[in-house]
Amino acid sequence: MYLGVSGRLPSLNVNRLAVPALLLMACTAAPLAAAVSCELNYPASDIARLFPESTSFKKIYFSFSTRGGQPMLQKVEARLGGLPALYAPLDVPYVVYEVYKGTKKIGYVHGVNQKGQFGVLEVFVSLDLEGRIKAFYLQRIAGQWAKKFTSPAFGKQFVTLTLKDFERYNLISGKGTGKVAAIANPAPEATTDFFGLLRAVNKNLILMDEFFYSVDKANP
């Protein structure tokens, strides 16, 4: 059974606890939530880490059904290369963290789910108000190579990237130029996850563009 949550158990023998916890949940667990959104496991500490200058944040939920409906979904899918998103019905909730310094909004943190080699990739980026990546955070990935992708060195390659940088790179063929093309794959044996991560960041930026930056520009 997949537990649906990850937890920090630093001072205990996790393996010894796992089975009783599993059995406990088997007897008492309620069904998991139907729709899957990508949320930070520990938003307070995660946002403080991703946005060190922040003092507060606001969580905003949205979905295609409330913002543009089917036409918007089709538009986004077209921008993603025409591939329909897996497990992404119109009402799937998306979460954006609006980050503030005092009363001033200074940026966003947004995450998306993307299919990886052995499981889901939960990819977050923090963005300034111009849509530039300030930090990259891979919350979840499965595989022996996971540490290579969660390393700070890999994440640094995404800092300062914008949506425009992705326009010069074909995420399906893997060809192109510019900053995205320059991102090095730390695990050549895991090309599925590598390209999955690139597509996740691209998808993240496109969603933010459609739902926030273009709206901010229209209503300054």
Binding site: M1, L3, L9, P10, N15, A18, A21, Q139, A142
Partner: peptide, 20 residues
Amino acid sequence: LMQAFFDPNKGDGGGIAGYF
């Protein structure tokens, strides 16, 4: 047989994955 395995790459600090 219920088994749970610790996944260190699940989130920041790891998580448990269970199997039936």
